[in-house]
Design a protein around this nucleic acid. Sequence first.
DNA 1: ATATCTGCAAACTGTTTGCGCGGAA
DNA 2: TTCCGCGCAAACAGTTTGCAGATAT
Lengths: 135, 135
Amino acid sequence: MNELERKCVSAGLKMTDQRRAILKVLDESGDHPSVETVYVRVKEIDPSVSIATVYRTLNLLDQLHLVQKHGFNSNFARFETKLEHHHHLIDVETGTVIEFQDDKLEELKREIAARLGYDIVEDMLELYGRKKQLS
Amino acid sequence: MNELERKCVSAGLKMTDQRRAILKVLDESGDHPSVETVYVRVKEIDPSVSIATVYRTLNLLDQLHLVQKHGFNSNFARFETKLEHHHHLIDVETGTVIEFQDDKLEELKREIAARLGYDIVEDMLELYGRKKQLS
DNA sequence: ATATCTGCAAACTGTTTGCGCGGAA
DNA sequence: TTCCGCGCAAACAGTTTGCAGATAT
């Protein structure tokens, strides 16, 4: 029973085979899979799972804050299980995604929002960059 | 003939009544209207315009970099004509978008990217917030 | 026992596209 | 005259939902 599963149980969710399979996939995914990708991976474990269940479960986990739902400027959602707050730098040449975190940035964001009269509920910074040339 | 219209002509687009109406609406919109909103505003000028044309024109303008297309964590696109670099704070309650710019932020982003060995090509910060309560 | 969960298929939403007519250049 | 652009309706993709049966607790 993995961490995610434990949290689901204590959130009062019934632990079905389908959910166990989905949670296993999420737990083992180091990337940012789409619903379709999660679905494909889940079917390798249990081919009977329907995509409707994947959608329902993913949305449920998102509401429980056990996964993070991203838009990534695309017309479909992508998910990650890493819960610590972080941001993404995307290498425009290779598509590689680098995750980062910065305390000064966190403080500055809060400061900016406060100046505008808001409390931050959520936020997202995406840097698109090219590797520096060593000249 | 507004700025947008001039740019369209020099990009080789044919200037039809429909496009003129859409460009006028965009030019006069200080907010970040959705396709539907642009459509409604355009119909006040010319009720015969179809929503397909609004979609086609908006996408065209986006490709020409004459408007900026945003996702804003929503399932529909929103547009703005402001082209100068800035970021957005989205009111999660109302959907209102507030624009901001911050020099310290610009420097910090550059610093973070440099630390990771990158030069920024493009970037996007979105803050989702709730109005502070005056306690 | 019973409330929750499931698969299925149909519905929904935002968006795109093929078609044949019409209008800008 | 020649494309390009248009309105219309159908198609599309991703996602959600009503239903009736199945299952975890």
